[in-house]
Write a protein that binds this DNA or RNA. Structure first.
Lengths: 222, 222
DNA sequence: TATTGTATGTTTGATTTCCAACAAGGAGAA
DNA sequence: TTCTCCTTGTTGGAAATCAAACATACAATA
């Protein structure tokens, strides 16, 4: 297990924990390591699971198939990423499958063990639970924000919603965003070209100025 | 506190707990009750908080203001609903405000107390933590689903994505949905009229039949 | 039965977005 | 410098969506 500490140290679940504490917890929740060859299934849609997975080496793909058999890759989990925690925590039927992208090593953590204080009342357990709740609620905040922006009907409103929230979040009318144009368009679920055009309009109307990923909003048209 | 047990029994956080267990937990996490008159703030955007709120009587509004002062009501919390748990759990700056809609009574729960096993090692605590994680991860699953559907570019693809997932979830090509047409359109972020038209097309193409909120999908065109 | 209200389907012109291609500008490499 | 490559901005025709009507069907009620 020790060989993977360099990975585990940087996992949000284990934030703020020392190496020996991590090892103690892994032991206390009876964590197991499995090896999966490329293209083999780790979770299959329709299953339930009480363990979550954490990629120690290799990578996995989260895929979803619709009724007509169209296969859709939802995301890729690289070393240090975890998956299945939502279904494990909720005892829900998986509507996604997880397959090894290449030969991979996966750490399996039983979520019920994680959530139960261990017999020896292991003190780091509380930290872990706190981290878990933090990770989950942070994810909800991120998703909520995205939905707030993307549910606006026009490209213009999506842009203004996003830029306004970034400005408020960063506490300044002048701020950088973490996206280039293509990424911003993908995030807002619009066409890059249409978005660029809309940005130009907003500039002409004096609502903002922008250079690359730097934006400045104006409260009133100049 | 006892007078509110009828409310608390039905809150997902307290699912599976008996009345006396609920009372024990409230005591053990040092829960407090506050009264708020109509239109007064409970949380203000920009604040941080380590407590979450639960509506015992009355109701609250979750509101958000953008940079230009446009006020947007995001949701309403009725008796038994809770709010602020995401920010409390994550120690995040609030980007929403919560105001009392009418004169209201609010139960404040300190999330750090909830997440720490109490000195007396109160056994119901584990159940509570488990419930909390369940509630959060379930919410993520719901949001993920919505984003999956709404991020499709056309009304047709949004419909098919949603209907396919519902069909798979309910394990049948013949199923009911919990929305009427207007609600479905709102959920998918499209126009009701355009959606109705698209449904008609899909019918003509033999991909599905529908009556009201009942749908039957066809794997191949008839 | 007649009346009313509600949900759903249809239509149409205006508007917006999509798609594809190209243009402009800058950064880095040869 | 010159030549790429990459990002961003611009444009025009095709396609989709929006908004606002109106039509239809059905249920509930008197």
């Amino acid at each position: 297990m020790k060989e993977y500490l360099t990975v585990l140290r940087n996992v949000p679940f284990f934030k703020g924990l020392e190496d020996d504490e991590i090892l103690a917890i892994l032991h206390c929740v009876n964590a197991t390591i499995i090896s999966k060859s490329a293209n083999s299934y780790i979770f299959k849609a329709g299953d339930t699971t009480d363990v979550m997975g954490l990629v120690l080496s290799g990578s996995t793909l989260i895929i979803q198939e619709d009724l007509w058999g169209h296969r859709n890759i939802l995301s890729k989990c690289n070393v240090g990423d975890f998956f299945g925690e939502l279904y494990a925590a909720n005892n829900a039927v998986l509507n996604i499958s997880v397959v090894a992208n290449v030969d991979s090593t996966i750490l399996l953590l039983n979520i019920n063990h994680l959530l139960s204080t261990c017999p020896s009342s292991c003190i780091h357990h509380q930290r872990l639970i706190h981290n878990l709740v933090g990770v989950l609620s942070n994810k909800i905040l991120i998703l909520n924000n995205k939905i707030t922006h993307t549910s606006k009907r026009t490209t213009r409103d999506k842009l203004l919603s996003y830029l306004s929230s970034e400005s408020i979040r960063q506490g300044s009318l002048s701020f950088d965003i973490p996206f280039d144009r293509q990424q911003l368009a993908d995030y807002l679920c619009v066409e890059r070209a249409a978005m660029s055009a809309e940005l130009s309009k907003l500039k002409k109307e004096g609502l903002l100025t922008t250079y690359r990923n730097h934006f400045e909003l104006k409260k009133k048209a100049v």
